[in-house]
Design a protein around this nucleic acid. Sequence first.
DNA 1: GTCTATACGTCGATAGAC
DNA 2: GTCTATCGACGTATAGAC
Lengths: 189, 189
Amino acid sequence: MTEAAASPRSGSGALTKEAIGTAARRLFARQGYAATSVRAIAAEAGADPALVIRHFGSKERLFLETVAIEGRFDHVTKGPLESLGPRLVESLLTEAPEITFSTWRAMLRATDSDLVRSRLIAAMEEMFIEPLAPRLQGPHPELRARLVAAAISGLLDAVAILADRLILEASVEQLVDLYGRSIQALVDG
Amino acid sequence: MTEAAASPRSGSGALTKEAIGTAARRLFARQGYAATSVRAIAAEAGADPALVIRHFGSKERLFLETVAIEGRFDHVTKGPLESLGPRLVESLLTEAPEITFSTWRAMLRATDSDLVRSRLIAAMEEMFIEPLAPRLQGPHPELRARLVAAAISGLLDAVAILADRLILEASVEQLVDLYGRSIQALVDG
DNA sequence: GTCTATACGTCGATAGAC
DNA sequence: GTCTATCGACGTATAGAC
């Protein structure tokens, strides 16, 4: 009866690991990697700090298992090339944008870690470059695909890291039109 | 004669502060904020760890005083609008790019800190948005200026954070042509 | 197999003696 | 101005109780 937390807690076993994962996901998304301590995650999950390490090995691996990028842009990258730029921007801004933004924010800030950086690079390649590069016409298709990914990174920086008010408050239509057409120039080559 | 470091060290006073600043600049650029300890900076400068805090107040303030963005793009943003995109990209990739990249890397990863984030936002506004927004023709000039800054961020992410090999090994001419024209689409509106 | 208790080494930062 | 001693918090590890 002297417990301080609000989550499941002891008794079951594997439920604790899940509670730790949920707490970690929330805290990492809200405060980032460095500002989130293992002890804070444990407290939020109602578990002992040692259990966090016991279950996940390290704070770094907990982060990787918990803040995975799951963005699915297949339906965009497989669609018609002539409208790919605008559709990419629209998808980014309308399909669960809060999750996309907080994940980008957390991962990018944690790229001090080689493991996190590798994971982010792999995610970008899987989501954008691999599906896109083989489809692009004209010279340097892979380079152009990578520049499309760069442009996406920039938009994510603006909204998720720098929190650019004017961009955040602009209508999706405006951003799709302006930034989407800019990306389309890379797609068209 | 039992000293372990290679820099000035005690005797003078104000020279020590400068030695600490130099060491901090180098270590922050090489390893980033989180991975660089106050003790490591002190060791590199041949000074006592307590002096680092004594002279700069905190690790955070030392970072801000030492890893300032000094990028000067006035000569680009004041030049002819019809070639601004390509000239921005060329300037970014040819004028002391290592310093630009390492500074971007260090600051972006440290945006957990409100102070660092504010400083980065201010630098982006001062370098790109303020000189650009009043000059752009057509609708939503400030929004478009901010999207230009976003595109720049994306290119910096690709080379400085994700270390995209294909982009890093591409010729400046190719990148100026491809990404510069993409940015130019934002400038032209 | 979970979990608790405890500990180790390092961190940023401070207080106070030289 | 500089250094010594120390603080509380951190990530991590382990020994041993349930």
